[in-house]
Structure formats: C-alpha cells, structure tokens
Nucleic acid binder design. Structure first.
Lengths: 253, 253
DNA sequence: CGCTCGGTTGACCTAACTCAACTTGTGTGG
DNA sequence: CCACACAAGTTGAGTTAGGTCAACCGAGCG
C-alpha cells in the first residue's frame, strides 16, 4: 500500500491514520459496489481484478471505463463528499482496498504531501477521461479496436499474439460498441492481417494495422495502470442481475 | 482574484508569490490560446468571455467543452507538467488570468490550503466531464437540446423566454451535433411548445418540455460557473483560420 | 448593389444499434 | 456417459440517428 503513488510520499503519521480505518475486501464477479446517487463513504483502490464503471439515465446504460489493477476510483466524489455519479461493478474476482472518506478528507487538509499526491492522481484521472472522450468521438469503431489491439500487444510484451484480458462482450463495452458490432469489426480486421482464435489475437502485419489505427500519444498515452477508456453503446438493461446481487461478499481484513 | 474559490483559502504568503508572476490578458475572438501537444506554461483562468476546448485526431475535430466565466482550464495538464491534451480558442473577447505553471506547482507543494483547494477544483472538473459524457452518450440530440434550454432558462432567472448565449453554431458544437441538426432539433421542439425567434427562445409549456428532457441532478447538476458540456460532431476542419491566427493579441497587465 | 456569413431546408449516406436465428463450447442432471 | 440447457459468440436483415452535401434565404456591410 505504501508503494501506491498516492501514499508513497505521505507522512508516517497521516499514513497511520489513514490505514487505521482502512480495510481490504474481496468481491466476487458481478458485485455491485456502488450505484449512482449513493453517498460515497469510501475511496476504493482496486488491487487485483477489474471493475466496470457505468452511467445510467432513462433505463439506458453506458460504460464509462473499465479499470484494471492498480487504480483508484471515485476519488473525486469522495473529495467533494458528493453522491456517486457512476455505478461500479466488479468484472472478475477483485481485491479492493477501502479507505473511509472522512479520514481521507481529513488527511487532505492536514498533510501537504498527501494532498499534492491527490492532486496528481486526480489530474491523471482527468487526463484519462479526456483521452477516452477523444478516442470515443474522433475514431470509428474499427479504429478504436485497432488501437486497442496495438495497446494490448505492447502491454503484453510486444509479441505478435496477444490475449484479450476479458470476455469479448466486455471488450465491446470498453470500446463503445455492441458485441455484434465488435464481432464484425474483428472480421473486418482480417483484411489488415489480424487473426482471431477465441481470446487469442495475432497481428501478422503490424505496419498495416498501424496505418489504420494511427495511434497518437495524446490519446493512447502509455497507460500507467490499465485501460481507462470510455464508452459502450446505449443499451436497455433489464436488471436481471438477481444471482449476482445476492452473491455473498466474503470480507477480509 | 482572492474571491475565486481556488485562491480564497490560501496563505497570504503563497498568494503573493502566485500573483507576483501572474498577469491578466485580453484576447480577441477566435484567438488560439493553445494547441494539443504544446507544453503548458500557464494555468488559465477565464474571467470574462467564453472559450471552446476541442480535441483533434486525423484531421477531425470535436468540441470537448465550452466554458463561461469564471472557469479554470487545463489545470490538470499544468499540475502534471504535461503537454496539453486539448486546443483552447476564445469564442468572444475574453479576459484571462494567467498564472505560471512553475509557481503554481511550487505553491501546491508548500501550502496545504492551496493544494486542497486544487484537489476540490479538480474534482469538480472531473465530475463535470463525467456529467458531460453521460449527457452525450445516454441522450439523443433532442433530449440534449431540451435539457440545455431548461438549464439556460433557470440560469437566466426562470422566465419563459431565454436568450442563447452564443451563436447557434456554437450551441450546436456544445451539444455535440452539426448546425443543420440543431436547426432540425429546434423545429422538432415546436411540438413541445418551444418557439424560436433568432437568439430568443420561449418555452410555452415547461411541463411538456420537461417530460421530454427528463432532467437528472446527476447529469444536469447546477453548474457552478457555466456549461461544462461535451461534444460536437466529427468534422473535417480545413484549417482556414489564417485571419484568426494572425490576430494580434493585445496584451495588458 | 452585391458580397459574405449564419441559418434553414431537403435529399442522401453511413455507422452503428436492434432483433432474430444459428453455432459452439461448457457444465449439469439423469 | 449422454442429453440437454445455457451462455458467448457469430451472422444476417432491417432500422435509425446523425452527418454530409448542396441549394437557398435574409441580414449586415463595404
């Protein structure tokens, strides 16, 4: 925990106060961590697993981001002590560190080192959102997918073949398209030397794919943690999550 | 300046240091304040006028936000000392306060009161972006316009008739649609009791319009400064801005 | 007087969503 | 061990929101 950039520079004293009330919890896949409009009592830090942030209005839902370890989320809402502006749900089993909001806000007002670390972290989140919006609005679906594949490739060591980190439907959500559309996009990419076999994707002609993708450092910035991307298409959601909702949240310190 | 929430709580000492190197400048309409990828040397604070933030990729441009007074912008980039992720251009004559980035970063590291004010400000910007994305992705053009009109109405005192603060094309950009589309949207709104006469818009049946708009506090939060919205449609931009580019920047202290 | 620019209107086009059918792989109960 | 059920993914056909292009109008201005 001390190794997180958010806490690394912090005073020993405030660190102790923050951790005193913090705890670690494991969540199963599909657990709803919070819902729009809820008061936000904790800052969440995703240590392992992945989580999806979404927004809803008028029975439609859209994915705002999919996070991987290590990421903080809803920092802004905690600082403002405002209701959550998004829903958070685990995608796979996730280890999450939870820090009470009151302690966090107190620490911000007392320790310069902490509050400037928070400012840096927030700035990073902000820039991530901006990148996500640009990715979403300036590129078409094919281009988004191409860039995503290139990003995954470099993150997984640069070899010609990569493994999709989630099920395809989550990738679709992440890229702002319907699963059907993702499927079609993949088959369109055959023309650019992309071969898909289940979750394995191999890029046979990187140069060609890159000419399509036109990656841009201002959009595809080397992601410090994991993809903080935008998107997903409007979709009616029938809230048939009963099974998941009821899933017991096995807690641990 | 002391009355800005960002500086109100700050130490007299750091306030002096910040203002020592700061200056105020007037810009004409259409002035490019900064361009994507530029190093960011100043924090900008818009005191009067309005400015448009946009992003580009592959010769397409999209409006990310339109700000009114009083708003800070590119705070995140200044804090990270990173290249700008968006373009900024004045829409009308604008008074802008500029604070050197180095001084600002120094102040953050030294004065808790300032760095926690920065954290609050950044959180607000972040939430604004999130709202903008939800507005953009979950609502259709008609709904966005309807909500925009209602928001303007309440900001202008609640009377049945309101005045559009910018030319319609900027409103279109702000709402993420082409000017043509905005025009059509306005005429569709006739069915909901909206009468348009140049920049004057009167809402004859608020209840009807509201049933269409379904305003939501999580999206249409009472904006502290001015609209921080998203959008604009992809558009080829032929960079025929010569006239504006060349416009002299009449500087003043 | 005629230019330009913002706005409007109409015809057309395209990306992306929806719905529905079909395939395949995986796990469960008989 | 097999049959069935279910979920993910794919494929195809139809729909739609929204953008593009082009023509047109009216106001301001040299």
């Amino acid at each position: 925990m001390r190794r997180l950039p958010l806490f690394a520079p912090v005073d020993e004293e405030t660190f102790r106060r923050l951790t005193a009330t913090a705890f670690l919890q494991k969540f199963p896949a599909g657990a709803d961590l919070l819902t729009e409009g809820d008061p936000v009592d904790f800052l969440y830090i995703l240590l392992d697993g992945s989580i999806e942030l979404s927004g809803t209005w008028n029975d439609k839902e859209t994915t705002l981001a999919v996070l991987g370890p290590v990421s903080t989320f809803i920092l802004a809402a905690v600082i403002l002590d405002a209701p959550a502006t998004m829903n958070a749900r685990t995608i796979g089993w996730s280890d999450i560190l939870m820090i009470p909001g009151a302690a966090l806000r107190a620490a911000i007002e007392e320790d310069v080192r902490f509050s400037s670390a928070v400012a840096l972290e927030l700035s990073g989140c902000y820039q991530g959102l901006v990148r996500a919006i640009k990715n979403q609005k300036l590129r078409g679906g094919l281009e988004r997918l191409a860039n995503y594949l290139l990003a995954q490739q470099s993150r997984q060591g640069g070899g010609p073949t990569l493994t999709l980190p989630y099920e395809k439907r989550f990738v679709a959500s992440l890229l702002g398209m319907s699963p059907e559309n993702l499927s079609r996009a993949f088959s369109s990419l055959q023309d650019y030397g992309v071969i898909v076999d289940g979750p394995q994707v191999t890029i046979t002609r990187p140069a060609v794919l890159e000419r399509l993708a036109k990656p841009d450092p201002l959009i595809d910035k080397h992601l410090p943690t994991d993809a903080i991307l935008i998107s997903k298409a409007d979709r009616e959601r029938n809230l048939q999550l009963g099974a998941h909702r009821a899933a017991p949240l096995s807690g641990t310190v």
